[in-house]
Amino acid sequence: MKRSDAWIRRGAALCLALGLMTTGASAMHIAEGYLPRTWAFGWMAVCVPFVAAGFFSIRRKVGRYPKAKMLLAMCGAFAFVLSALKIPSVSGSCSRPTGVGLGAILFGPTATTVLGLIVLLFQALLLTHGGITTLGANVFSMAIVGPFVSWGVYVLLKKAGCRPALAVFCAAALGDLMTYVTTSVELGVVYGNIGSYLAIFAVTQIPLAIAEGLLTVVVYNVLEKYSKAELQELSVL
């Protein structure tokens, strides 16, 4: 624990350095009604193949292994609660973890897409984060791009023989960051001025992406230490 402590402290110092510009990065879901009709439905159409693929893969798994349904529901609820927790950020502004990295590493990207769709719908209706017409755009950035990037980075780095902690950190931080970059691009292609959106939503997110990476490493370490059996069962999913 001593070494990871020092690591976290160094990371926190870095967050402090970068965190000074973190002021407006509290919003990660595109609010209801912000996108015009063509783009709203366009993003929904883009999501359909991914969600369908995820749905069929879940259905196959549930058919083979009935307990999978319960476990997946549990994972979805966990993702919702995780995304409602506040990351203590140094600059005073709290932000919420996207949880995409952890989700993709634990459950794989296709299952994460379907769970992400349900969680985002609940967040829109219960917590008023995001919306119904912008669900497609939000699913694309948070439940498709983020998880696939995280999962790809994790698998690649593990293949390359990196330490697991480093692979988890890079996967979670890059997944978080790419989620915000996608959100900025989604907004930028509609209203122009992509650079400003990137500056507001993505650059300010860098320290928070680092914080989420560190957080995911802590979670991963604890899980690996105390719940080997569960993680092995999870790899069946």
């Binding site: 976290i8 990371g11 319960m70 203590p88 560190l214 802590v218």
Partner: peptide, 26 residues
């Protein structure tokens, strides 16, 4: 949650024990 570093570790422990409890609940 006194300092940011400690807060991160606490939050990590919270998330992982939440995961374990969720798993057992399922």
């Amino acid at each position: 949650y006194q300092t940011a570093g400690r807060g991160l570790r606490s939050l990590g422990e919270l998330a992982s024990s939440l995961f374990l409890r969720a798993w057992r609940q399922a």
